[in-house]
Design a binder for these strands. Structure first.
Length: 465
RNA sequence: GGCCUGAUGGCGGAGCGGUUACGCACCGGAUUGCAAAUCCGUGAAGCCCGGUUCGACUCCGGGUCAGGCCUCCA
């Protein structure tokens, strides 16, 4: 199966061929850990989690290395630490842990490695030194700046020319910059901020250098796939390319840094960008209190990753309802045994077509339907096994079906419900319909829906309870 | 101003130059003590204007609208 992905650098869908199929490398820009992640931050996590799973499926679990960095040096972190009177690692460890827990709730696998800036400072300093030595950066007033004009293909990823950028510059040019577009590799720390040693004096790294340094140090150049949000194309990824290549002596083509670039689109919120000033920030940490993480995950995968996705309550409701359908089928056929089954070709094909998750989801629906309508045990077993195998590739449907419907109920409530159900079964056996209806109503008031069947009764908690 | 997306049925959302996407919701039927679920079925689309074509939702040109990036940002 050939994997096709849309490469931002080439602006086209191209066949993915790893440099070494025994060691496929993927790097995705991760969080700056000074606060909670919002649902927009979760989109690349979930999207590239699917890619990670797909690559593992194609090349083997042990042949894919997925790195997602944790940025633990940053102005916002410094600010939070100062306000709370603690060291920065108190803040960063706290929010890195929460981040990983929240992303796990969304069904995201842990990356192979999560490099942190503070633990890669030597590599960062070394890369900056190499860039300086190669004549692509200069030191000035304690800063080290990348010399944009020295790198002839600068702007290729975002399709901007240095001339255009200079013409459109609307930022005041710092006195130590030769050129408005030059960006910081190293800068002096302000009083009270954490400081690291460097040949240019105490200070800390600029925003972009961490990724290129950690990529070179942990994965080696070039990596196969570099991913991130659309907004990172410029300047972040553009600068990464410049740094990563200019630290090498021989650089010719931009693809020698990352061979494929993938960027996910943004979430919209009623045609508004989510931002703190608009007060429409939806934190994953809060959303998962109301909605199963799996429903949020399905919602994030309901549209193609490159397009915009409007995040609305309806989207969440529909995603949840769709999962009700899948888990309903799995619950009804809980007794059907499952065997090891390859991922259905149609699902693999959909995902190999630039991660077409909506199509993969449609195939999942077809399998659920096949399970419902199968006429014999053999067909049921096949359909169920394929549904679960396809779901696994998408990071879906791996939970317990009973738990999906009953998960929100604690032990007390469950016991209460079970008692009422038992009473109701007795009433029905005696054909005492008024009593059976009375109990149904009582359960309804508890937010419970009873489903009768030939063999007894089962129940589910209604959404939002 | 530059760069880049998107515009499909009530809603979400794909593929495809000529045939059912799929899901959610709705409606009709079967089934059910009631109900849910399930099954069968119906209805419902392609921003506007040109062009190419025997034929366009699908290709080309123009326009309109919406959004993003160009400054921290997934």
């Amino acid at each position: 199966m050939k994997l096709q992905i849309h490469d931002t650098l080439r602006r086209d869908k191209v066949e993915f061929v790893p440099q070494n199929p025994e060691r496929v490398t993927l790097y995705v820009c991760g969080p700056t850990v000074y606060s909670y992640a919002h649902i927009g931050n979760a989109r690349p996590v979930v999207v590239f989690d699917v890619l990670f799973r797909l690559l593992r499926e194609i090349y083997g679990e042990d042949h894919v290395i997925y790195a997602r960095n944790i940025t633990d040096v940053d102005d916002k972190i410094n600010k939070a630490a100062m306000e709370q009177g603690v060291e920065i690692d108190v803040i960063t460890n706290h929010f890195a842990d929460i981040y990983n827990e929240d992303m796990a709730t969304l069904g995201a696998l842990r990356p192979s490695m999560e490099p942190r800036v503070t633990r890669n400072m030597d590599a960062i300093v070394a890369q900056i030194a190499a860039i300086v030595a190669n004549g692509h950066a200069y030191a000035e007033q304690g800063h080290v700046l990348f010399d944009v004009e020295s790198f002839k293909t600068y702007g290729a990823l975002s399709r901007r020319s240095v001339d255009d950028m200079i013409a459109g510059a609307r930022v005041e040019v710092a006195p130590y910059k030769r050129n408005a577009q030059d960006f910081v590799l190293w800068k002096p720390s302000k009083p009270g901020e954490p400081v690291w040693d460097s040949p240019w004096g105490g200070g800390r790294p600029g925003w972009h250098i961490e990724c290129s340094a950690m990529i070179e140090a942990n994965l080696g150049l070039p990596i196969d796939i570099h991913g991130g949000g659309h907004d990172l194309i410029f300047p972040h990824h553009e600068n990464e390319i410049a740094q990563g290549l200019c630290a090498q002596h021989a650089h010719g083509h931009d693809s020698e840094y990352a061979r494929y670039w993938m960027h996910n689109g943004f979430l919209d919120f009623g045609s508004e960008k989510m931002s703190k000033s608009l007060g429409n920030v939806k934190l994953v940490h809060d959303l998962i209190k109301e909605t199963p993480g799996e429903a949020l995950r399905l919602a994030l995968l309901s549209g193609h990753y490159r397009g915009p996705l409007e995040w609305t309550p309806e989207l969440v409701t529909q995603s949840r309802a769709r999962l009700d359908g899948f888990y309903g089928a799995l619950r009804r056929f809980a007794a059907v045994p499952v065997r090891d089954e390859a991922v259905p070709p149609a699902i693999l094909e959909a995902l190999c077509d630039d991660l077409n998750t909506p199509r993969a989801l449609a195939e999942l629906s077809a399998l659920a339907k096949a399970l419902e309508t199968a006429s014999d045990d053999e067909a049921r077993m096949t359909a169920k096994s394929q549904l679960l195998a396809g779901g696994a590739l998408l990071g879906l449907l791996q939970g317990d079906a009973e738990a999906w419907f009953k998960g929100g109920a604690d032990e007390d409530l469950t016991a209460k419900i079970d008692a009422l159900i038992a009473e109701r079964i007795a009433a029905r056996a005696a054909k005492n319909w008024p009593e059976a209806d009375r109990i149904r109503k009582a359960l309804d008031e508890l937010g419970v829906e009873v489903m009768d069947s030939a063999t007894g009764a089962t129940w589910k908690l209604k959404a939002g309870v």
